[in-house]
């Protein structure tokens, strides 16, 4: 159910406190210097693996590739059964059937992008049909995109209503709302879009589609983590954050975990409340994990090419 917002949506969103851009960057850069070693690093790597939404969103995706990735999602490191499975597999809607079959009984979630991903420039009926079809095919999580054009033009009501309608079409499936922060230009806009999506009923707010540069950055994720933290304080409902795109190394992933802990708090340090959308990241996490076990640096020759 969408929250009722006192007064006009516009005056509400523009009444949110502005973001101190320099301060946010400094804080994110500061937290990124934190050193995570030995046992803490091991725990962080395993947690990061459990938070990965293993993603393939290419025009060239084939059923074979999706099945291969599903096998990797279930058991990321075939040589080491102690490596945990990832949180979910994220695919285009036409691949849900293949993915659902390959993931059956594994406990790994199945996320599908919908609503005219990645641009989101289709009529509402098409977006809703896209969503319903994805849920019917077996998706447990829906990654929708907002209409950035409408948002930037100030038509907040349209964006709000779309999210509400898609949320209703999702049924039991979790709804992740992609803000595409790379196109929102300012941190103030990121904060407004975050609150807008949360009030409209988003279960997760997600940084990017991965198709636009810049994708996820630490400062943007920091602003979004503040939003979910403050939203829970204001309404009592907890929502999650997904950072997606451009996170390629284990070091990067651990920096995001530090951010989650310091900004949102321990409650968010769980795959139910924080996700990392990535494809190449998983290999680096596994490589670092193996390094901790064997003491030797690994090489990409020893991991699958996705």
């Amino acid at each position: 159910m969408p929250d009722t917002i006192p007064g006009s949506l516009r005056s509400y969103l523009h009444g949110l406190p502005g973001v101190d851009e320099v301060g946010v960057r400094r804080r994110a850069a500061d937290l990124a210097t934190r050193s995570i070693k030995t046992t803490a690093k091991r725990a962080a790597l395993d947690l990061a693996i459990r938070m990965v939404d293993l993603t393939t969103l290419e025009g060239a995706d084939t059923p074979g590739k999706v099945r291969a990735l599903a096998a990797k999602a279930r058991r990321p490191d075939p040589a080491d059964p102690t490596a945990p499975p990832v949180a979910a597999l994220c695919v285009y809607p036409d691949m849900i059937g293949v993915a659902a079959q390959a993931l059956a009984g594994s406990g790994v979630g199945l996320a599908s992008v919908a609503t005219g991903f990645p641009a989101g420039r289709t009529p509402l009926e098409v977006k809703l049909a896209d969503t319903r079809a994805a849920v019917a095919a077996g998706a447990t999580e829906i990654d929708m995109v907002i209409d950035r054009g409408a948002f930037l033009a100030g038509d907040y009501g349209k964006v709000f209503d779309e999210i509400t309608a898609v949320k209703a079409a999702c049924g039991d499936a979790h709804l992740k709302v992609i803000l595409e922060t790379g196109e929102l230009v300012t941190y103030d806009n990121v904060r407004r879009a975050s609150w807008l999506a949360l009030h409209a009923g988003a279960d997760f707010i997600k940084t990017s589609t991965g198709k636009v540069t810049p994708a996820a950055t630490l400062p943007v994720t920091l602003v979004m983590l503040e939003a979910v933290r403050d939203y829970r304080a204001a309404t009592g409902r907890q929502a999650g954050v997904k950072a997606a795109g451009g996170i390629r190394t284990a070091k990067d992933a651990i920096r995001y975990l530090v951010l989650v802990k310091e900004i949102a708090g321990d409650d968010w340090l769980d795959s139910a409340w924080f996700r990392l959308g990535a494809s190449t990241l998983l290999n680096d996490l596994l490589m670092q994990r193996t390094k901790l076990g064997t003491g030797h640096y690994g090489g990409p020759d020893y991991y699958t090419i996705d």
Partner: peptide, 9 residues
């Protein structure tokens, strides 16, 4: 030792 043990060498 780390160079000789590195799997990507």
């Amino acid at each position: 030792p780390p160079l000789a043990g590195h799997a990507d060498v």
